[in-house]
């Protein structure tokens, strides 16, 4: 991907974001659920209700509300959360790193799993490891990420209580972070006690998110490697006397990566979407967990902010995938 094409992609993402902004705004005001109706206490009078509408700017027409929202958005203001009474940008900035860290660990686990299982299945093609990996992939694919989360809670939280099943770190561990990237920060600082606590807490949610991706990715990688194994350059490597292991790893694997990266990239968007439920189940204080609270409370400014953030994350992720694709396939670098 050249700088020009990257710039083109970035420019194209502007109308995409604007579309998300409009749809998001209109949809939230059309679907049932009025935040003020949820707020009024037993003794509230019509004047109380009208007053609350005024305070939250919901007494204006949708058109007026949108213009105000757009003006604020362009100046970097996403409004104030109705339920949390805090600046939406501040809330998102506080939670986004938590979700990003979880997603990154999940992606790292996925990549290790995909490569490990994909290569293993190809090396032992037609033998029991391949069968085992196929069965594993089929089973894992059939179970959604949130069910894995519940299963892990049952296994590691109850039956064999060996892993933490709630939150981000042990409450007894003192840590005064500078950023919200606790895991990376504790590692960078060399604070291994904190690092261990955070790692332990992130493992199960990350594994719940990673498993479905591993299943899909490993299957695809295996079949891509198998396809590559029929190519002429592999035959040439065999003639040269390369071992089967070396042919798979050094010849077929790099060429099999392109379709795997494409599909895995698309699946990563599902992984990020999956953080919503998984964070909720593990009480992980990320953006997804906050999104559910925002929806329950019909916190319109906060929902809008979170949806926009997810949209930006998906756009960035897609651009990154395209860049990786170009990196892996030299022919695309000059398109």
């Amino acid at each position: 991907m050249t700088a020009a094409s990257l710039l083109r992609r970035l420019l194209l993402s502007v109308p995409t974001l604007f579309g998300v902004l409009i749809i998001n705004f209109v949809l939230l005001r059309v679907v049932p659920g009025d935040p003020i109706a949820m707020m009024i206490g037993p003794g509230a009078t019509p004047e109380d209700i009208q007053n609350l509408r005024q305070i939250y700017g919901l007494d204006k027409s949708i058109y007026q509300q949108f213009l105000l929202y757009l003006g604020d958005f362009l100046s970097g203001d996403l409004g104030t959360s109705i339920s949390m009474r805090q600046d939406v940008v501040e809330l998102i900035v506080g939670r986004l790193p938590v979700t990003l860290e979880l997603a990154l660990v999940a992606i790292a686990i996925s990549l290790v799993g995909i490569v490990g299982l994909g290569i293993t299945a190809s090396i032992w093609k037609g033998r029991w490891p391949e069968v085992l990996i196929d069965v594993f992939s089929g089973f894992v694919q059939a179970v959604p990420d949130f069910l894995w989360a519940l299963l892990f809670i049952l296994i590691f939280g109850v039956l064999w209580a060996s892993m933490p099943i709630f939150g981000r770190m042990d409450l007894a561990v003192e840590f005064d972070p500078l950023t919200q990237f606790y895991l990376f920060e504790s590692l960078f600082r060399g604070d291994l006690v904190v690092f261990r606590s955070i790692l332990m807490h992130i493992l199960l949610p990350a594994l719940s998110l990673a498993l479905p991706l591993i299943a899909i990715g490993a299957r695809l990688l295996k079949s891509s490697i198998n396809e590559s194994m029929a190519q002429d350059y592999v035959q040439l490597a065999r003639v040269k006397g390369f071992s089967h292991f070396r042919i798979v790893v050094s010849q077929a694997f790099p060429n099999a990566l392109i379709p795997t990266v494409t599909l895995t990239g698309v699946q990563m968007t599902f992984l990020i979407g999956g953080t919503v439920l998984v964070e909720r189940i593990f009480g992980y204080p990320g953006l997804g967990n906050m999104a559910i609270d925002a929806v329950i409370n019909r916190d319109l400014p906060l929902i809008q902010g979170i949806v926009l953030t997810f949209a930006v994350m998906f756009i960035v992720l897609n651009i990154l995938i395209d860049m990786t694709y170009a990196f892996l396939n030299p022919r695309l670098r000059h398109d």
Binding site: I153, L154, G157, A161, F166, R280, I281, G283, I292
Partner: peptide, 20 residues
């Protein structure tokens, strides 16, 4: 006193059962 915000009932059950 710590109030953990465990909104999922299954997780709350696991919390008490595991001694957390």
């Amino acid at each position: 006193v710590v109030f953990k915000f465990v909104t999922n009932p299954a997780s709350r059950i696991a919390e008490i059962e595991s001694g957390s």
